[in-house]
Design a protein around this nucleic acid. Structure first.
Length: 597
DNA sequence: TCGCCTTTGAAGACG
DNA sequence: CGTCTTCAAAGGCGA
């Protein structure tokens, strides 16, 4: 069954043929062009790194394998080692190489659908897509899976057939809906966006949800709001479909994240149901993106304020009203905003859609990767999947994480601009609480972790299992090794701050990592050993590939690899890329072995 | 039908 | 300033 889902997307994977082809590479390539953002670029690289078409497929497969293996066996070692090695190494290297446009060009194929299919992840699409819709609103319905990957994002941008876009617009959310094909059964996240979807859409997703029905084809009419009829700013891009919200609002800013966000799911900030939004974030993106990227939302962002905005609760994408999600939005939009009598205000507030918190780096990552993971493994439970994702997160290289952190940062900025008055506190108490129990459980888990740690220290592993849901073993991966303690913070912290993605700081982080997370610790232990060996080998061997995987997270690897990768002639790399791929793949193994050694 | 579970990160609350 | 709590996404599962 799983296969099914994958299948499609996979097209990518599976098909082998697909590997290269899929790629959306081509798309990616384009994206780059479009993107043109400075920041973006880096991302792209990274993204590219992660996976490109071929690489993607390969990597994806690997990942899957890893995951599966891990799932299957939580066995620690393998999973850990394999993961790190397989996944990372290849990816990075590949990414780097693949990116090259030329390469893409070649790769590109006419197949529309194919494109999207491509590798699920390709890179992080971040690149350029500025889309933005923001999904802060909750409502989105959406889609399920959420699987959109960044990659998609790229694509969209690139290819985005106008038609497609149009469609999207039309069926805003529907886009997804519309294409059931996409969704279908499995959620196949990966797949995603079929052509229907706007390339961006995926990203936008959020918006889509929102968009929904009403939304007019933005393209067509550039910017009139369906609702208000107000003309929007000319560029959709600017607008950001994302924030549909205010549609009327003119200028909302696109959500930086938008692109990140996967479409399917909900948008981060979803729009109010009624709200309309631009569906085509993609369009918008460019301009906005760049601006966003640059981090300046200002113009758009700022502006937005006016009309709709509202600081207060307004209809904004992010806004979701739990209660009444839908209602509010549309209507409320301007009117509501306009503050009515206090009473009304209260009402609104009550109803008011609540603005969701901006997603943090990990959440963004989850959104993107969830689908993949789901596709890979049979598990469906989010809890199990999240564990896996957590593990994968740790395995990400700093750079990769940095991307997400940056995105998260932008998202927060955007969110703050959109909802200046909003505070996390606003959402407090909305969910039910579970406090103590949870804590207890946590504490228990912690204990377990500690125990695990102890074990680890001693060397044993085991613990993991505990965490995992008994049922699904498969996943446990993460734990596999790990288990252990967690101290997440550190790494994250390091990263976090680091807006600078690349920042090699990673090293700094690393240390932290050690302290913090359990896994990391566990990994550390492993890594440390491996690492040492790796270092030697690495330096001598020179190929990064090997190391990255192992070290990747914990250690400096991240930096290393990248450095290595980057250092080489980048573009030309393209050529290499192909070659490289194979090599890389091979490497992993070798690496592994090395590490083992 | 609702809340739990699970992950990481951010931000608020509290001491 | 440090620690703890809540929420963000997501979807199966149990009550």
């Amino acid at each position: 069954p799983a296969g099914q889902a994958l299948g499609r997307p996979g097209g990518a994977g599976g098909g082998g043929g697909g590997e290269l082809g899929s790629p959306g590479l081509g798309a990616a390539g384009r994206g780059d062009d479009l993107g043109a953002n400075d920041e973006l670029i880096p991302f792209q690289d990274e993204g590219g790194e992660e996976q490109e078409p071929s690489s993607d497929s390969a990597s994806a497969q690997r990942d899957l394998d890893e995951v599966k293996s891990s799932l299957v066996n939580e066995s620690e070692n393998q999973s850990s080692s394999s993961d790190s090695e397989a996944e990372r190494r290849p990816q990075p290297a590949r990414d780097a190489f693949q990116k090259p446009r030329d390469y893409f060009a070649e790769v590109r194929r006419p197949q529309d659908g194919a494109f999207f299919k491509g590798p699920p992840y390709p890179g992080y699409p971040f690149l350029m897509i500025p889309d933005l819709s923001s999904p802060y609103l909750s409502n989105g319905p959406l889609s399920p899976g959420g699987a959109r990957t960044y990659l998609q994002m790229k694509w969209p941008l690139l290819d985005v057939p106008s038609s497609a876009t149009v469609k999207d617009t039309r069926s805003p959310s529907p886009a997804h809906l519309v294409n059931p094909s996409l969704w279908p059964s499995n959620k196949v996240p990966v797949v995603q966006p079929p052509h229907h979807m706007h390339p961006l859409t995926p990203l936008i997703t959020y918006s889509n949800d929102h968009f929904s029905p009403g939304s007019p084809p933005t393209h067509l009419s550039p910017e009139i709001d369906p609702k208000t009829g107000i003309p929007r700013p000319p560029h959709p891009s600017e607008l950001s479909p994302y924030y549909p919200l205010s549609p009327g609002a003119v200028g909302q800013i696109p959500h930086p994240l938008g692109w990140l966000v996967p479409q399917q799911g909900q948008p981060m900030y979803s729009l109010p149901p009624g709200g309309f939004r631009h569906p085509y974030p993609a369009l918008a993106m460019n301009a906005s993106m760049s601006s966003l990227v640059s981090s300046r939302f200002s113009p758009h962002m700022v502006a937005p304020a006016h009309p709709g905005l509202p600081a207060s609760g307004i209809p904004h994408p992010a806004i979701v009203s739990p209660i009444v999600k839908q209602e509010p939005a549309p209507p409320s939009l301007s009117p509501a905003v306009s503050a009515k009598s206090p009473v009304t205000v209260k009402k609104e507030e009550e109803k008011k859609p609540h603005v969701k918190k901006p997603l943090n780096a990990f959440m963004l990552y989850m959104k993107e990767m969830r689908a993949k993971v789901v596709a890979e493994c049979t598990l469906k439970e989010s809890a199990a999947i999240n564990q896996i994702l957590g593990r994968k997160w740790h395995n990400l290289s700093r750079e990769e994480q940095a991307k997400y952190y940056e995105l998260a940062r932008k998202e927060r900025q955007l969110h703050s601009q959109l909802y200046p008055t909003w505070s996390a506190r606003d959402n407090y108490g909305k969910k039910k609480k579970r406090k103590r129990e949870k804590q207890l459980s946590q504490t228990q888990s912690q204990q377990q972790v500690q125990e695990a740690e102890g074990a680890l220290a001693s060397k044993s592993k085991k613990p993991c299992v505990q965490y995992l849901p008994p049922e699904k073993s498969c996943d446990s991966p993460a734990s596999s090794h790990g288990s252990m303690l967690d101290s997440p913070a550190t790494p994250s912290a390091a990263l976090a701050s680091p807006a600078a993605p690349a920042a090699t700081h990673s090293e700094q982080a690393q240390p932290l990592s050690l302290t913090t997370k359990p896994e990391s610790r566990a990994q550390l232990a492993l890594h440390s050993a491996a690492f040492l060996s790796a270092k030697a080998t690495a330096t001598s061997s020179g190929q990064m590939g090997s190391q990255p995987p192992l070290l990747s997270r914990p250690l400096p690897l991240g930096s290393l690899p990248t450095a290595l990768l980057t250092s080489p002639p980048s573009f030309p790399a393209a050529l290499h890329a192909h070659q490289a791929l194979p090599v890389l793949q091979a490497q992993p193994l070798s690496l592994v072995t090395k590490s083992a050694h």
